[in-house]
Each structure stands twice: as C-alpha cells, then as structure tokens.
C-alpha cells in the first residue's frame, strides 16, 4: 500500500507531463486537423533552449526565454511551413510528412552540437529538495510541475470559455468557415492555437531537461503517448485529453507493481492498440454508451 500511493504520486508527475503535451496537441488538432508531429520538436526545443540559455542567463529568465522561443518556433512552423503548403493544396498526409521532416531537422540540429550527451538543465538546488507528503515524498520540482500543469490547464479552459478569442477558437474548431463569416482572419486563430499549444509543450520540455535531461527521440515518445491520450479522451475535448493523459501517467507507474520499468511503456501501447481496435471513438465514447445502455 505504501508503494502503491508513492507510485500514484509518481504517476501524477508523469501524467502532468503527458497532459501538458496532450492538451497542447488537442487544442491544435481540434482547430486545424494538422497531424503536427513536430509538436514533439517544440517540446524538445523547450528543454534544449533552456539548457543553452543558462550559459548566458540566470535560470528563471532562461526558462522564460526558452518557452518564448519555443512558442515562436511553433508559430513559425504553422506560418512558414503548413500554411504555405496548404495554399499549394497539400493536406493530410503531405502535411504530416512536412511536419515529420521538421521534427527530424529540429531534433537533430540540437544533437549536432551536443553529441550523445543529454542536455541537463541545472535548475538549482531547490529542484531536488524533498517534499514530504504524509509518509510519501516528491521532490520540489515535481510538485511545481504538477501545480503548473493544473494551473495552465485551468487557465486554458477559462481562456477558451470566457474570452472573446477563446470563443473564436472554439467556433473555429467546430466550423472553420464560421470565423470568416463573422469577419475574422482564420490565420489569427491558427497563430493563437499554435502559440498556446507550443507554450504547454515547451513547459513540459523544460521540466524534462531539468529532471532527466533532454535527448534526441525523447520528444517522440512523449508525443505519441500524448496523442494516445487525445484519442482516448475524444478528439476535440481538452478536458478529455487532460484526464486521459493523467490516467496514462498513473497507469504507467502503477504497472511497475507487476512488471519491470522497461516494459511499462510497451504495456500501455498494447493496451492502446486493444482499445482503439475495440472502440475507435475513444474511451469517452465507451463510457457514454454504457451510461446510455443502463439508463
């Protein structure tokens, strides 16, 4: 039982990371239908930028600048690559391949300078201070991550529900033509969703750099687990993505009770494959059906 609770706490940490990446992707995907795999590169860039910037700046400003640069990167991807491509009639598969190309380029450009060495961000001694929670514990960095993840999620939901721009994003996601009908430029919505989505992913990337160090290929793993969360949570549902990502993080850690750490990710993927085969509409849909059946 002791171990179980500790695993749940660790699961909350992993879930927060997945949730940040997943919610960002869900926002972008719902509005644009872009299979933006370079989201993984934006996540990685957050970590790499923070690592490199600490050479010139104190940690705080370096992290802020890193997140800002990653947001610029995400917006640059949509304005310089995806939009021009769409204007040439490229969509779906073609857009995915361009995004894949961008991911490969960005991930490896950072690696050229570093070699095989992980980019480990020196966040300061506070990061590893132990925080006792009952008989269990986390480090301060982990607690900060969980708090930030929930705050950003809450902030995003509020933004979407309460502000004019948020409503415009939601309207655009439901019907892209609507935005033009009411006389707004769709490009504005694209920039907004890519900026917000990239911000969330970059924050997760910064944490990973401070915790284990950023490495090539790491972004893809986080990305693919997060996309699974988006699919399980139901495409278009920000809250569904958040909850599903948290559950995946928890599950991945609880699985440690029955298997070695090297197998937990594979187990989650197998579970996802079974799930998507049984219910392609995602987990949210299964629950809905059950409720309907019992009513």
């Amino acid at each position: 039982m002791d171990l179980f609770v500790q695993l749940l706490l660790n699961g909350l940490v992993a879930g927060s990371l997945y949730a940040l990446v997943a919610v960002g992707f869900a926002l972008i995907f719902a509005a644009t239908r872009h299979f933006h795999i370079a989201h993984a590169a934006v996540f990685a860039a957050g970590g790499y930028f923070a690592y490199f910037l600490t050479d010139f700046l104190p940690v705080g400003p370096a992290v802020a600048a890193a997140v800002l640069l990653s947001v610029v990167l995400g917006v640059a991807l949509v304005t310089l690559l995806y939009r021009p491509l769409e204007r040439r009639g490229g969509a779906g598969f073609v857009l995915f391949l361009v995004s894949l190309g961008a991911l490969i380029v960005i991930d490896n450009v950072f690696t050229v300078g570093l070699g095989a060495q992980p980019a480990r961000l020196a966040a300061g001694s506070w990061f590893t201070t132990t925080v006792a929670i009952g008989e269990w514990s986390l480090i301060a960095g982990q607690v900060a991550l969980i708090v930030v993840a929930f705050l950003l999620f809450g902030g995003l939901v509020t933004l979407l529900a309460k502000t004019r721009m948020g409503k415009l994003v939601q309207a655009f996601s439901a019907n892209p033509e609507f935005v033009e009908i009411v006389g707004r430029k769709p490009q504005v919505v694209l920039v907004v969703v890519y900026a917000l989505g990239s911000l969330l992913a970059a924050v997760a990337g910064v944490y990973v750099a401070a915790d284990t160090g950023m490495q090539p290929g790491l972004g893809e793993t986080f990305f693919i687990v997060s996309v699974m969360a988006v699919i399980i949570g139901g495409i278009g549902s920000i809250t569904g993505s958040f909850v599903a990502a948290m559950l995946l993080g928890l599950l991945q850690n609880v699985l440690l009770l029955v298997m070695g750490a090297e197998w937990t990710l594979a187990a989650i993927f197998v579970l996802f494959l079974v799930l998507i085969t049984v219910s392609p509409e995602g987990l949210a849909k299964i629950n809905f059906r059950r409720v309907k059946a019992s009513a």
């Binding site: 491509l85 040439r88 857009l95 391949l97 190309g101 991911l103 490969i104 490896n108 450009v109 070699g115």
Partner: peptide, 23 residues
C-alpha cells in the same frame, strides 16, 4: 559524432523540400 545527426537533418530537409516541390 556530428555526422549521424547531420545525415538526419539532411533527410528531414529532403522530405520538406520534396513535399513543397514534388509531393
């Protein structure tokens, strides 16, 4: 140490260029 990543960068650029010029 740089050759491997550079090779990948090249592949990535090739993919992007191809999709724009000759999808």
């Amino acid at each position: 140490s740089a050759a491997g990543p550079l090779e990948q960068v090249f592949f990535g650029l090739l993919l992007i260029l191809l999709m724009f010029v000759r999808p």
